[in-house]
């Protein structure tokens, strides 16, 4: 009985809605701290020592905007499955980069929620992993009918 309830909860579209808003808010919030300060964020990216010098600046400029757009789309439910995939890819990549630097014992900061961020560590890896699961739930069980209905309402079609 409990297993069935948990299974039903995991597959619930209402849980998807809640997670969409949570993950979307998280990424919009994270991006807003980085968008105005690309230079600081570029230094954090360079500290990871995994992205070639020529692409550090471009990454520092683009990445926060990708976070913002994907997070915003998740909140409003537009292209939510694609956004969940993009966010999942960002989380997976950042987790791998954090793990590599943890293995090398590099004392760097993650640059997650602002241009500098907190030090990397297992806490950060766990946070990313949980958010990755949330993205997977959104991808699998989100139903974007709400946005479609809203669009139909605004456009006046049936």
């Amino acid at each position: 009985m409990i297993t069935i309830s948990i299974n039903r909860l995991i597959r619930s579209e209402y849980l998807s809605l809640a997670l969409r808003i949570y993950v979307g808010y998280l990424f919009v919030y994270a991006s807003l701290g980085k968008i105005p300060h690309p230079a600081q964020f570029a230094e954090v990216i360079a500290d990871y020592r995994l992205i070639p010098f020529m692409f550090v600046n471009a990454t520092a400029i683009l990445l926060p905007w990708i976070e913002f757009v994907a997070g915003f789309f998740l909140i409003i439910g537009y292209r939510s499955r694609g956004s969940a995939i993009v966010i999942g890819m960002l989380l997976f990549t950042s987790t791998v980069m954090i793990l590599i630097n943890m293995y090398q014992a590099a004392p760097i900061t993650c640059g997650c929620y602002d241009a500098v961020g907190e030090p990397i560590g297992w806490k950060k890896v766990m946070e990313n992993t949980f958010t990755l699961f949330f993205s997977a739930q959104i991808f699998c069980f989100d139903k974007p009918e709400l946005f479609r209905k809203l669009g139909n309402l605004l456009l006046g079609s049936s």
Partner: peptide
């Protein structure tokens, strides 16, 4: 989905970086 998400992100990033006083060169 990806075209819209990445296209919009690139567009916003370029325009904002140009107008941002703390903007940096892409390369």
């Amino acid at each position: 989905d990806f075209v819209i998400i990445f296209g919009l992100s690139i567009l916003l990033a370029i325009t904002f970086n140009i107008s941002n006083p703390s903007g940096i060169p892409f390369f």
